[in-house]
Amino acid sequence: MTDTQTPEERRELARRTVLAAGGVVVTAVGVGGAFVAGAQASEQENACYTLTSELVEGPYYIDADKIRQDVTEDQEGIPLHLRLKVIDAETCRPVRNAAVDIWHCNATGVYSGYEEMGSGGGGGGPTGPPPSGTPTGTPTGSPPPGGGGGHQEPTDDERYLRGTWRTDRHGYVGFRTVFPGWYQGRCVHIHVKVHVDGTWTDAGYEGGHTCHTGQLFFDEKSVLASAAVEPYASNTTTRTTLDEDTIYPGNGHAGGLLYLEYDHRHIARGVHAHLTLGVAPDETNDG
C-alpha cells in the first residue's frame, strides 16, 4: 500500500485481503510475502464437486438400530476417534440430520454378528472330504467373504463395533471405536452408509433412503504401527495391503482414505481420523 492510493482503493485492497484470508489457506512466499491463494482456492472449489466413491456394502451389514456414538463395547484395541463431515457434493452445503452407519471388524478380524465365521469369514475354510464328480449347473449362494460378497445372515446376537448417529447442522458426526484389524483378503477398513430424508424417532431412524455406501481406509504406515501392538500383533491372518486390496479404488481421499493424526512413537495412545464425504442426497446408493 502506498501514500498515493485513494481511500477507496485502500478499502478495496483491505476487503480483498480479508476475503482471501477467510476463504482459503493463504501462504506467504518470498521476501515480499506474495499470496499464492488462487490455486488453493481452485483446489478447494473442485473438492466440493468431488463425489466420494460408492463401494460395495459387503456381506456383514446389519441394520441394528444401535443409535450411539461409542460403539466400542468391550472390544480391546487402539482407541479411534472418527469424525466425518457429510456435504452435498454439488452445492458443498452440509447435509444435516443424516443417519450415518459405521461397522467394522475387531482387532483380530472378527465382525460382531458373524463370530462363527472367524477372521476372514472362512475360519479355516471348508472341512471334510473333497467333492467328487464333475460340477454341473450354475453356482448358487453368496460369494465367499473377504471380497464384495453378497449379504450373509448373522450367526449371533453380538453387535459391537456397529452404530448409527446423526449429523449436526454443520454436517459433522463423530464416533468412538477402536482401530480395526484385518482379515483374509481385505485391507484394514471401516464400512459407512449415509441415509437421508428419513425421520428421527425415539426408536431410531425410520424411512428415507441410502444416498451413500462406502468404505474408509487407513494408510500402510498406520497399519504397520498398529500391527506391533496387542491384540493386533496376535492376528496371524495374512494381511492384504492397501495397494493389494481389490475394493479400495486407489483415488486417495475421494476413495475413502482417511486423514489420520497420532503419536507415531506411541500409536497405542489413540488415533484421530477424519474425512469429508461428498454425497448426492437425491440419489440412492445402497451398495
Rank of each mutant, 00 (worst) to 15 (best):
E9L: 14
E12F: 08
R15V: 08
R16H: 02
A21T: 05
V24R: 07
G30Q: 01
A39H: 13
A39F: 14
E45K: 12
T50P: 10
T50G: 12
E54W: 14
V56C: 15
G58F: 00
Y61I: 05
D63F: 15
R68P: 01
E73F: 08
P79M: 07
L80Y: 03
D101Q: 03
I102M: 03
W103G: 05
N106V: 09
A107N: 01
V110D: 03
Y111Q: 12
M117S: 12
S119Y: 07
G125Q: 00
T127Y: 02
T127W: 02
S132M: 07
P135K: 06
P135A: 04
S142E: 07
P143T: 13
P143Y: 14
G149S: 07
G149K: 10
H151P: 15
R159V: 15
R162G: 00
T167A: 07
D168L: 01
D168M: 01
D168I: 04
R169G: 14
V173P: 02
V173G: 07
G174S: 14
G174F: 11
R176T: 08
T177Q: 03
V178T: 03
G181V: 06
G181L: 00
Y183S: 03
C187D: 13
V188Q: 06
H195T: 07
D197E: 07
D202W: 02
G204E: 06
Y205K: 08
T210N: 10
H212W: 11
G214R: 03
Q215S: 12
L224V: 14
A225D: 10
A228R: 06
V229P: 00
E230K: 12
Y232I: 08
A233V: 06
E244K: 06
E244F: 10
E244Q: 09
I247K: 09
P249Y: 10
A254Y: 04
A254T: 14
G255Q: 01
G256W: 08
L258D: 07
D263G: 05
H264M: 12
G270D: 11
L277W: 00
G278L: 03
P281F: 02
E283Q: 14
T284C: 09
